[in-house]
């Protein structure tokens, strides 16, 4: 929210979780703030605010990105998926369900970001080994779980797919 006095406005058109949105926004608004403050989609979290922790991970045009490092205006014309848009009509998606079944969630703050990173990763690598899973989650930091059960959950999701 710095430098608001200098800001110009931008007419943003973007698809979020399947819904087309048209909204005037300040040019300096970060994508994370647009999602959390403007759209009230609070699944993406802010922790470090500088691209280290991955708690603000969303999928932009199918790719995992840190929404704290992107101006909302940069997403113009794009497609965004947040954790709120992941569940299907029949309930949680399989990655979400595996995280619950394998007890991969403790405080939960990092989990929306983790799950979206996993979503993209499994599309590229449907049958990963544990080392590949760890490498894929390098950008998502968790201070509770020790990662073991997170890796279990990803491995089990892949096995069931």
């Amino acid at each position: 929210m710095l430098h608001a006095e200098k800001t110009e406005w931008f007419e943003l058109e973007v698809t979020v979780n399947g819904q087309k949105i048209k909204q005037a926004i300040p040019m300096h608004l970060r994508l994370l703030d647009f999602l959390r403050e403007t759209l009230r989609l609070t699944g993406a979290k802010e922790v470090c605010g500088e691209g280290e922790c991955g708690a603000c991970t969303i999928l932009l045009n199918g790719k995992a990105v840190n929404s704290c490092l992107i101006f909302a205006a940069e997403s113009h014309g794009g497609t965004i998926l947040t954790i709120e848009g992941l569940q299907t009509a029949s309930g949680l998606n399989d990655v979400q369900q595996s995280f619950i079944d394998d007890h991969a969630v403790q405080c939960g703050y990092c989990i929306p970001g983790m799950i979206l990173s996993v979503e993209e990763f499994l599309k590229h690598s449907p049958h990963p080994d544990r080392e590949k899973i760890r490498h894929a989650l390098a950008g998502n930091i968790c201070r509770c779980t020790g990662y073991q059960k997170v890796v279990d959950a990803v491995e089990n999701t892949a096995k069931k797919r």
Binding site: L2, E50, F71, E74
Partner: peptide
């Protein structure tokens, strides 16, 4: 502005405050 991964933290800290930002993506 290309990827923005180095620029954004510097912008948020007030170290880079451009009047004009050209997103070349």
């Amino acid at each position: 502005l290309a990827g923005g991964t180095d620029l954004m933290p510097r912008y948020e800290q007030g170290k880079v405050l451009p009047e004009h930002l050209i997103n070349i993506k």
